[in-house]
């Protein structure tokens, strides 16, 4: 009689068990698998790099012109004065809408979908604590978000490193790589914590996503109004500048989800930014970097509120439909 291809009868398990403290890793791994498997994750991350791609094309053209014309010292002067920090700041700023999309993708349904399907009963009836669940979900969102944010930045950094080293890419700011890492890490921590908190309040991922996106856009609109106020405060040929209004608008501009992150990027990169292509020579005024505490304290508070909300909502309660 042929042997069965597999033993498919139920047997008592007598093998070893993993340490209880490693359950968060199981949950986090599931989050990573789910996020990295989504094509839209890579699409959003790729779109977030559009500014860097344009800059790469621009720099490539200049480089080619330099080679064909043998521009010599003129090209050296141009490439030696590329405001790399400002380009990273601009790329990060222009990528905000894609970071939002990424955070919605990986975080909006993280707890909300579990609430809707009573999955918390499955998690918490296993040797898995509330803290394991929350840490697992947090890491499951944070790592993909960090990867999604870091890829475009790392891509442009590597481009600069490989092509413009001799023009001072590294020597002008040896800590640029670490600054960029801090920029995306803190932003990813902030976004993950806030969206997990929002997610925990709902029973459907799409509702949580809609609520988070609504809050994001409302606050962004507020920042936009502050930007207009700041622009007006800079004065025109007919109107005098109003520095007091400018200062207030500049501070308030940073009190939105993307404003906080842009403010943080300015702080950590140590630049106010400059207009793309023309740089500081263009003479266009830029908002100043806010004091570090002005962005870090609200970011920390919002992150803690998000985590506290999620902590409070994680309960082994059945949702009766």
């Amino acid at each position: 009689m042929p042997e069965p291809i597999a033993d498919l009868s139920y047997r008592t398990y007598s093998g070893s068990h993993l340490a209880v403290g490693s359950r968060w890793l199981v949950i986090a791994r599931m989050g990573w698998r789910t996020a990295f498997k989504k094509k839209s994750f890579w699409v959003f991350s790729g779109f977030a790099a559009w500014y860097y791609l344009v800059m790469i094309a621009f720099l490539y053209v200049i480089e080619q012109l330099d080679i064909t014309r043998r521009a010599g010292p003129m090209a050296e002067q141009f490439f030696g004065n590329v405001p790399w920090k400002d380009h990273f700041l601009t790329g990060f700023t222009y990528g905000q809408i894609m970071w939002l999309s990424l955070s919605l993708l990986v975080g909006a349904g993280a707890i909300a979908n579990d609430n809707g399907t009573n999955a918390l009963l499955v998690y918490l009836s296993k040797p898995c604590r509330k803290v394991d669940y929350l840490l697992g979900k947090w890491m499951g969102g944070f790592v993909p978000l960090l990867v999604g944010m870091a890829i475009p930045t790392a891509f442009f950094y590597l481009y600069g490193l490989l092509n413009f080293r001799e023009y001072g890419f590294v020597s002008n700011d040896p800590w640029l790589g670490m600054r960029l890492l801090a920029m995306v890490t803190v932003a990813a921590v902030f976004q993950t914590s806030v969206i997990l908190g929002v997610s925990s309040l709902f029973n459907q991922g799409r509702m949580a996503g809609a609520a988070y996106a609504a809050a994001f856009f409302l606050l962004t609109f507020f920042s936009f109004l502050m930007f207009i106020a700041w622009s007006v405060s800079q004065g025109t040929r007919r109107h005098h500048a109003n520095p007091q209004l400018g200062d207030i608008a500049e501070r308030l501009y940073h009190l939105s989800f993307d404003g906080l992150q842009i403010g943080w990027a300015k702080v950590v990169l140590g630049t106010d930014g400059s207009a793309p292509f023309v740089g500081k020579a263009g003479g266009m005024p830029q908002m100043h970097a806010p004091p570090p505490a002005f962005v870090l304290v609200p970011m920390a508070l919002l992150s803690l509120v998000g985590i506290a909300l999620a902590w409070r909502r994680i309960r082994a309660v059945e949702v009766v439909k």
Binding site: N113, D114, G116, L121, V122, V319, K321
Partner: peptide, 11 residues
């Protein structure tokens, strides 16, 4: 534990 209500991990 097999709960009374529907429960599964979505997706």
């Amino acid at each position: 534990y097999m709960p009374e209500q529907d429960c599964h991990i979505p997706g």
